[in-house]
Write a protein that binds this DNA or RNA. Structure first.
Lengths: 298, 298
DNA sequence: ATAATAGTGTCTTTCAGACAGTATAGT
DNA sequence: ACTATACTGTCTGAAAGACACTATTAT
C-alpha cells in the first residue's frame, strides 16, 4: 500500500504474515437494496392525466427465516468483493435490475436484527425510471413484486423532564399491490438533552409487523425520509424520470415524494436551470400538448 | 421476533438451530471515529479576538500495520455489541472521550483497504465542544493528539466524450500540530452519464500518503464535506459550542467550517430563532462586552 | 482618546407563494 | 363548444446581501 516511513519493513512483513483474523468470532455482513420507482396508475378518463404512485421492489423469501414473507432484495457480502460490488451483484441476481442509480443509505448494526446469527446490513437506496422495467425473479428469489407505499403518522407524543425532551412518533407503513397488503407499525423515539440542547439519540423499533421480514420496514421508512430530504437539495429525482418527460410529470414525482402539492409556476421557475426543452411534445392527450424536456447536465 | 404467519413454527425452529454462519469466510467489521472540535488559537493582541481552528482527534498506532503513523480512533466490532455500541466503547477506551454527539457517517467496503485482512469499516462523525477537553490516551493507544485541518483543492479537471462527463478533483489534506505535519493527496473522480444526465459513480483514491494510516485521509475528507453540508440545513454546529457562547463565536465556527466569511447582520437574523439570550456577558475583552447566548431547544 | 468588536437600521435584491389569465389539442 | 391541462404574467411578502451607523469597554 503506501509507504511506511517510521518502521522496519521486514518487521511489518512478518507481522502481516503471522496475522490471524480468526481470533475473534465475526459478524456476517449483508447488503439490502431499497429500489424505488414511480409508476403511472391507469387513467380514469381520456382527458385526465394518469395518477402517479411511488413503488418499492420486494422479493418473497424462499427460505427460513421469514419464509414466504416479503423482504428487500439483498444478500451476503463475499470476501472477494467490495460492499458496493455486492450490492450490484445481489440486485442483479435477485431481480435482474442493473445499471441504475444507487447510493449507500445506512448500516444497520443491532445485535438481534437477524434470528439466524449476528448480521450487520449495509443498505442502499436505488432509483429506477419506469422505462427500465424488465424486472423478473432471479435464481435466489421465488417472486419479485412492486408494492405501492403509504406511510402515515398515526401517533405523536412529547414529554419532558429537567434533563431531556422525549419525542415519539408512531408511523404506519403500508405496502400494497393489487392482490396483497403488508404493513408495519414503527416507533421512532428521539431524546434531546435539554441542558445543552444537543441531540443525543434516535431509536427506531418495530411495534407490529405484518408480512415484512427482519427490520426491513424500518429501513424503508428511513429511506423514505432520506428521499424526501434529498429531493429538496439535490437532483436525485431525475433518476426516477425517463429520458424525456413533461414538467407536469416531474412535478408530480416531487409531489408524491414530498407528499404535498406544489404550485406549478413556482416549481417551473425553480427547476428551470436544470432542465432543457426539446422539440418534442406529448400528443393524444385530450387537451393542450405538453413540451417534453430532458435533464440539463451540469 | 415478530409473528410468522405463513410457515410452520417447528420447521423454522429446527432451521435456526441447524443454521451455521461459518460456511463462508467473513470480513471483519470495525468502527472509525472522526472526532472534530473547534479550538481557540492564542490571542495576538489584548484587543483582538482569538482565531478559531478546526481540529480532528488522531491516535498514534502502537502496532503494525502503519506502526507509529497517525490513525483515527477505532477498533473491531464485537459479536455481542451493536455497531453504535462499538463506536462508543472504542472511543472511550482509546481517548477517554464519552457522551458526545455522534452520528453514522459512511461504511467503507473496499476489499484492499486494510493490509491485514478483509476489513469493512463503519465510520462515525463525532462533535465535541472545547469545554469537554479531558482527552488522554487510553489503553490501546500510545498517544492521542488534536491536529489542525487544512484542506484545499490543488487540481481540477473535466473531460467529456459522447457517453459521459468525467470530473476529477485533487485535494491536499494537511493535518498539523505544533511539532508535526502529516498530509495526504486525494483524488475524487466523478463519472456522469451524459445520455440521461444521471450520476453514476464517485471514486475516491489516495494518490500520496504521508503519515496518515489506511484510507483514513479519505474518511476525513468525506467527513469535512458532510460537515459543510449539514451545517447549512441542521443545528449540528451547536455540538461544537459550549453551553454559553457569543454570536460572534458561533459565526466564527460557521465560517471556519464553510471556509468563507459571513455577514454579521444576516447571520444573526438567520440563527435568531434557535438561540436564546442570557443575562451574562463576556468581560475583560478590551472592547465592548458581548452578550452570551444559549441554544434554544425545540 | 483609541482600538476593536457588538449590535442595529434600512435599502436593495432575490425568490417563493398566490392566483388570475391566456393557450391549445381532442372529442 | 367544452374539458382538462399547459404555460405565463404579475403582485406580494419573506428573507438574504450589503453596508452604514451607533454602542461600549479596557487600555
Amino acid at each position: 500500500m503506501d509507504e511506511n516511513s517510521n518502521c522496519n519493513i521486514d518487521d511489518e512483513m512478518s507481522f502481516l504474515e503471522n496475522y490471524s483474523s480468526d481470533k475473534y468470532s465475526k459478524p456476517s455482513v449483508t447488503v439490502d437494496m431499497l429500489v424505488f420507482t414511480v409508476m403511472d396508475e391507469i387513467k380514469k378518463n381520456y382527458r385526465k392525466l394518469a395518477e402517479k404512485s411511488l413503488k418499492i421492489l420486494m422479493i418473497k423469501r424462499a427460505e427460513h427465516p421469514y419464509k414466504n414473507q416479503w423482504a428487500l432484495p439483498g444478500g451476503f457480502v463475499k470476501i472477494t468483493e467490495s460492499v458496493d460490488e455486492a450490492a450490484i451483484r445481489e440486485l442483479e441476481s435477485e431481480t435482474n435490475v442493473s445499471n441504475i442509480y444507487m447510493e449507500q443509505l445506512y448500516t444497520w448494526g443491532n445485535v438481534d436484527r437477524d434470528p439466524r446469527t449476528r448480521v450487520i446490513s449495509c443498505s442502499y437506496l436505488a432509483l429506477l425510471d419506469n422505462n427500465n422495467l424488465k424486472i423478473k425473479a432471479g435464481d435466489d428469489a421465488k417472486e419479485v413484486k412492486w408494492f405501492s407505499i403509504r406511510s402515515k403518522k398515526v401517533d405523536e407524543d412529547e414529554r419532558r423532564d429537567e434533563k431531556a425532551i422525549y419525542k415519539s412518533n408512531t408511523i404506519l407503513l403500508e405496502l400494497y399491490s393489487e392482490d396483497e397488503k403488508i404493513s408495519s407499525l414503527i416507533k421512532i423515539e428521539e431524546v434531546k438533552e435539554v441542558k445543552e440542547g444537543k441531540l443525543k439519540k434516535i431509536n427506531r423499533s418495530i411495534i407490529q409487523n405484518n408480512g415484512i421480514s427482519f427490520d426491513h420496514s424500518i429501513m424503508i421508512q428511513y429511506a423514505l425520509e432520506r428521499l424526501r430530504n434529498k429531493i429538496e437539495y439535490t437532483n436525485i429525482a431525475f433518476n426516477l424520470m425517463p429520458d424525456l418527460f413533461t414538467l407536469t410529470e416531474l412535478q408530480k414525482v416531487y409531489e408524491i415524494i414530498l407528499d404535498k402539492e406544489l404550485l406549478a409556476a413556482a416549481f417551473r421557475r425553480k427547476i428551470a436551470p436544470i432542465v432543457q426543452e426539446t422539440e418534442h411534445f406529448t400528443k393524444d392527450a385530450g387537451h393542450r400538448p405538453s413540451k417534453l424536456f430532458k435533464f440539463k447536465f451540469e
